[in-house]
Amino acid sequence: MQQLERSRELIQAARDEISRRVVGQREMIDGLLTGILAGGHILLEGVPGLAKTLTVRSLAEVIDASFQRIQFTPDLLPADLVGTMIYNQQTGEFVPRRGPVFTNILLADEINRAPAKVQSALLEAMEERQVTIGDTSYELAEPFFVLATQNPIEQEGTYPLPEAQLDRFMLKLYVEYPTPDEEQEILRRIGVPQEFDLNKTIFQADIKKLRESVDSVTVDERIEDYIVRLVVATRDVENEGMGATRYIDFGASPRASIFLHRCARVRALFEGRGYVIPEDVKRVAPDVLRHRIVLSYEADSEELDSDDVVTMLLSTVPVP
């Protein structure tokens, strides 16, 4: 119980520290923390200027972790990401030069602007948590956490991530515009120079403890059943009885169930609870499911996006 409370305090401290620099965006901050504690990667989608990069930088500062940022461009090569063998004239040998992927927190900015082979290299690193340079495989740092961003507008000259690769992101977070009050606060802060460092509130050891706390959160079998029913409902495209499934061509993979299960535990920990309730599952479900369902023509014709369909599913599947 004490560990749960300590975990909640740590998480709250990290939230508060990031909020010193980032106004609002509570959902994004919680999503990022969820990803770190659940051990998953996150895809951030939002129009430019919503403090995506600032938030990730702030997170990296608050957590005692190394941080690298790569701007994905069309001429980026896999070697620019993972590293390459370079020739050392003094020794006459090829030595590995590790790329920016060797870090704890990697910000892959505008991931959809790099060609597929670069995306694949990154996604492989995300999945395998190791990269191969030359003949040698290198383990990536622990924790290894990729935050990829993409811009929903200006799609010309981009390389949209294929569904199989999208599935590797635990969460896809939509970054919303700030509220008018938050925007006023942003204006006030800009007027005053704020060149200050954030305090580190979560250290490497804390991350380990927090993950242990997440593992200690119990999930009742009825909650597990709810998670499975929710995910299966996305695949039940043959069943016309469920209103939302006619908008889905392909449903979520079992990875969705795993991530829902994990993220729901983290959400319970956010609240200082040692058990998951249906509310936890519902809160993380849109972030976990929105990039895992392929919408049908019918959804397009009715101008429904994946969030609308997930909302429909959530309002259809009975909670335990």
Binding site: I277, P278, E279, K282, L314, S315, T316, V317, P318, V319
Partner: peptide, 10 residues
């Protein structure tokens, strides 16, 4: 109203 799919918080 759809209470069957509503959580306690909702």
């Amino acid at each position: 109203i759809s209470i069957l799919s509503s959580t306690t918080a909702e």
